[in-house]
Structures are given as C-alpha cells and as structure tokens.
C-alpha cells in the first residue's frame, strides 16, 4: 500500500534521512522505532508532504506522493496524527473533528463517522463543546486520533502517540490503535516506546540516525538481542 524507497531528506546541509526504504502492506500495523533524533518524525513529515525530500520515492498505491500537493494527500486516504498532537487549541473538540473531515462532501457519512469517533472516545463526546486547548494530554491525543479518523483514511500515520502519557493511558491508546486497525485501517506507527509498538506490530523497522538498521516482524525484533539491549532495556 505504502512504499518508501531510497528516501533522502536534508535540513540545510544536514542529512536527516539517508536513503531509507520500507513498505506497509494493506491491513498491517507497521512500526518504525528509534531514539530521539533518529529521523522518525522527518520520515512522517516527508510522507505527508510537510517536508520535501531531496530524492527517493514515496508511493501510495502506486501514486508518487512527492509529486502531489501536500493538502491533497489526505483526500487520497492517508491521514497523519502528528507528533505533539497539534490539535487546534482555540477550536472546540467538535470543530477539530469537523476540520478533520474538511475536504469531504458526503455530509451523512461525516455524521456517522463522527458518531463512530465519539463511540471510540466517549470522553470526547462529553467534552465536545470544550476548547481543545483545555483538554488533558491524553484527551488531546484522542482528539488528534479522532480528527484523523474523520478523514475516513485507508492508512493512518501515528507519530509518537504515547508521548507524555501515563502507562494506563498508553495502554488505552494502543488498544484503540489495534481496534482501528481491525476495522480495516492500515497503520504506520512511529514510537519511542518500542516494547508496546513491537507487541502490536506485524512488521517493524529500526531507524538509527537516518538509516534503517534492522527489519523484521514485530515478534522477531522484540526477541532480537540488539533491539532488547538498545530499546527494551534488556
């Protein structure tokens, strides 16, 4: 479904991504794990068109995304939950969700999707008329995920959804990611919390200073000695 090949991204003179390749197949959960500064967020931004890669290709079902205008990528079925949530703090919860469906014209389906999001995150429903900036970190994460779901995406990119959340909330968020995936949405998950990410991933890639150093199924990598040493505190 999503295929990244020889992707290179530079910030000025610094090469943040040094020619990585990976693939996400239909219906899978694929995770990209790595430490701070490994290039995870840069990779996400490149896929969503927020940064322009120097070279390489990013294909969504055979369409070259690097040639598509960034704001059109969402309507092709690829939604991103950005790092740090980036909800619209001055808008209400409901307005944030409405913004997630901004490009869509199918009003009835938008309504059902909003009900679906409210079912998935009952807390958002309770707070639907509250400003997003007043929500707790966990609620903002739920809102960011709900907002992405409002685009009715075929593939969802999640950038560090567990960042700054309590272990209890992390469990909740991860079980919701699995639920979203079971409903048929492909997931590309970027995480520092390697243990959790590997536990739910079909495939996993380890990103280290702009290079992919390891690749395997989630289970294989969680048992890999190098991964255990570097990322699982083994």
């Amino acid at each position: 479904m999503l295929k990244v090949e020889n992707l290179v991204v530079k910030y000025g003179m610094i090469e943040a991504i040094k020619g990585i390749s990976f693939e996400v197949n239909d219906g899978e959960i694929v995770t990209l794990i790595g430490a701070n500064g490994a290039g995870k967020t840069t990779t996400m931004h490149a896929i969503s068109g927020l940064v322009k890669p120097v070279s390489g290709s990013i294909q969504l079902d055979g369409v070259e995304l690097t040639k598509v205008q960034p704001h059109k990528i969402l309507s092709m079925g690829l939604a991103q939950v950005p790092e740090g949530r980036r909800v619209f703090a001055q808008e209400t919860v409901e307005e944030n969700l409405t913004l997630g469906a901004f490009f869509r014209k199918d009003k009835d389906k938008i309504r059902t999707d909003m009900d679906f999001v409210y079912d998935l995150f009952p807390r958002l429903k309770e707070r639907s008329s509250q400003l997003a900036g007043t929500l707790s970190g966990g609620e903002q994460q739920m809102l960011a995920m709900g907002r992405a779901l409002m685009a009715d995406p075929r593939i969802m990119l999640l950038d560090e959804p567990s960042m700054g959340l309590s272990p209890l909330l992390v469990s909740e968020i991860f079980s919701i990611i699995e639920e979203i995936n079971k409903k048929g949405t492909t997931v590309l998950l970027v995480e520092q919390n390697a243990k959790r990410a590997l536990a739910i991933a079909d495939h996993a890639y380890v990103l280290e200073t702009g290079n992919i150093t390891l690749h395997g199924t989630g289970q294989e990598l969680s048992q890999d000695e190098r991964v255990q040493k570097a990322y699982l505190g083994g």
């Binding site: 927020l50 704001h71 969402l74 980036r86 808008e91 409405t98 913004l99 685009a151």
Partner: peptide
C-alpha cells in the same frame, strides 16, 4: 463558513491545517 474555519485553523497551525487537507 467553511473557509472561515480553514482560516482559523491556518492561523493556529499551518502544518496541522495542511494535514487536514486545507490548501494553506
């Protein structure tokens, strides 16, 4: 209006607005 809502979104966070499919 919808355009007005997009304007509000852009004034807060252009990157996130782009992720919403808004042509900034």
């Amino acid at each position: 209006t919808k355009t007005g809502m997009a304007m509000r979104a852009c004034s807060e966070d252009k990157g996130a607005a782009t992720l919403m499919g808004i042509n900034v």
